[in-house]
């Protein structure tokens, strides 16, 4: 009897060990490929990032000079996109989760939101070009690009916000309402503050998508290398610039430098977000 038990335990621990090994191996592959990709870019690019590269405007199509206007353009487009998408996304999530619980309308809208999330970005670009750039006459501009990107990041934002709204216990809502708060006050003062870090997560995912987007931005923002003054100016994002440099073989150095900077930027945003969401959590 005890022999059998011992054997079974032994068998179990071997099985555990094997599984542990396989999972560890797969995790290692993920980690290693990440390190190789990021490492390759950084090794090739970091040495070409210097003050001149960061502070000067591109010359001769980016072959020489820096990418100052492109950095500013990237930040500009991303901010405009998020400023448009955040209130709309959060409001939509609140509507879905707090007001229109269940119901045909909601499930229909949600169905289309899911589809929206799966549409290739070039389609968004095409739509943005036809609608914002041409039809509404906004031209190639930060605004056209921001609007297009905001539509692209909306599903992510809505879903992240909705998920975190769902985690807010019903008892908070009841507690607030029982004190004579209106539904709106309850949402603003109790429920949303509980969702800060969830919304922030959605925001970061959105920013990541906006910063990395190439096709849709190219079609709606254009490719001007000049520093944009207003949201009605054309500009160029780092991803677009990178695409141009690489596809036209303008300069290997500048290509890798731009790529490295893009990676650093994404890392920075993620770290900042982590830091902020930890601070909010407390």
């Amino acid at each position: 009897m005890t022999e059998k038990l011992k054997q079974r335990n032994q068998y179990k621990s071997i099985k555990n060990g094997v599984f542990y090994g396989i999972i560890g191996f797969l995790a290692a592959i993920t980690l290693i490929s990440l390190i190789v990709i990021v490492g390759y870019i950084l090794i090739n690019g970091l040495s070409h990032i210097n003050w001149e590269f960061l502070s000067q405007e591109p010359r001769r199509m980016g072959k020489e000079g820096g990418i100052f206007s492109v950095i500013i353009g990237t930040i500009y487009i991303t901010i405009v996109a998020m400023v448009i998408a955040t209130p709309v996304g959060v409001a939509a999530a609140i509507y879905f989760n707090e007001y229109a619980k269940g119901g045909k309308v909601v499930s229909t809208i949600r169905f289309f939101t899911e589809i929206l999330a799966g549409i290739p970005s070039i389609i968004f670009g095409l739509f943005g070009f036809a609608f914002f750039v041409v039809f509404l006459g906004m031209g190639w501009s930060v605004l056209s690009g921001g609007l297009t990107l905001s539509m692209m990041v909306l599903p992510t934002l809505v879903r992240a916000t909705e998920e975190s709204l769902k985690t807010v216990p019903m008892t908070y809502r009841e507690g607030s309402l029982s004190l004579g708060a209106s539904k709106w006050q309850t949402i603003i003062k109790v429920i949303l503050p509980c969702c800060k870090s969830g919304i922030l997560t959605g925001l970061i995912l959105g920013i990541g998508r906006a910063v990395g987007e190439t096709a849709a931005v190219m079609l709606t923002v254009g490719g001007s290398l000049k520093l944009p003054n207003t949201i009605f100016d054309s500009t160029r994002s780092m991803a677009v610039h990178l695409y141009m440099l690489a596809s036209e073989g303008l300069s290997r150095e500048k290509t890798y430098a731009t790529a490295a900077l893009l990676i650093l930027m994404v890392l920075l945003i993620n770290t900042a977000a982590n830091f902020i969401s930890r601070r909010l959590g407390n």
């Binding site: 216990p169 008892t171 908070y172 507690g175 607030s176 029982s178 004190l179 004579g180 708060a181 209106s182």
Partner: peptide, 17 residues
């Protein structure tokens, strides 16, 4: 709202915000 202001409620499980 006036009703709930005058008629408060304490729940089974403590639910501080």
């Amino acid at each position: 709202i006036a009703l709930r202001k005058k008629v408060g409620m304490v729940f089974q499980k403590p639910n501080p915000f």
